[in-house]
Nucleic acid binder design. Structure first.
Lengths: 113, 113
DNA sequence: CTTTTTACCTTTAACCACGAGGTAATAGAT
DNA sequence: ATCTATTACCTCGTGGTTAAAGGTAAAAAG
């Protein structure tokens, strides 16, 4: 399937979305670009990832949506709820745990059999 | 499904297996315990993850297997091939890229709309 | 007036981790 | 001697999650 962001991506879209939307409200297309920006182009998430994630997070009560007319066009702005911030906090500690464990395992010299 | 290692685990089993098996040959059950050891109990991978991963990596030519009788019991020892080491190197850079990108995005203060 | 960019959204596919379960041999405990 | 825990191997099914690809339409740019 020609993956552009190979491995290590489970949970990452959710983490990034919650981080950004805890700072200020944004709409889908904007998030696509912001994620590239704040990761220094290292991570690119397409709309096919962003929109379904936003719906799922909204459904879970982690985000709230609000429709806003900008000019003649309507945009759907999302922002993190209290629940979303809590979820983010948990994700952050999960992330740190995995990250540190992998770092640890990289240094460990395995004792010979 | 009550996951013990929530999110951020895609690619991690493969990374850990290749790391360990680049150091010395090991068998499945041993790997299950070693992974707990070298990650300070932070990551626990069951046999349901380990064995299928080993087969897949062997099939891909990243590992080679060898059956060894230890006492009366037979064990299947795996070790990394040259191809496996190459694959590990790529995984390591992928991992660093994602890790650094997430770290970056955590510091970035998003400019207001 | 035509093309590119913005903006929204859905469908489909595939991957992969994981738990649960199953077998059998060996070692240790009673 | 017998029972239990541990070692060691393995398979199957599920479900979550990314991701590409496609589809619509408005607005800005050329």
């Amino acid at each position: 399937m020609a993956r552009t962001n190979p491995p290590f991506m489970t949970g990452v879209p959710e983490l990034l979305l919650l981080r950004l939307l805890s700072q200020r409200e944004m709409y889908g297309y904007e998030l696509v670009r912001q994620i590239q920006l704040v990761t220094g182009e290292a991570i690119k998430l397409g709309e096919g990832v962003i929109y379904p994630s936003l719906y799922a997070l909204e459904k879970a009560g982690a985000l709230k949506a609000r429709r806003r007319k900008v000019g003649a066009r309507e945009r759907v702005y999302y922002s993190a709820t209290a629940k979303g911030r809590k979820r983010l906090a948990k994700l952050e500690t999960d992330w740190e745990r995995i990250r540190d464990a992998i770092s640890l395992s990289g240094e460990a010299r395995v004792d010979p059999a």
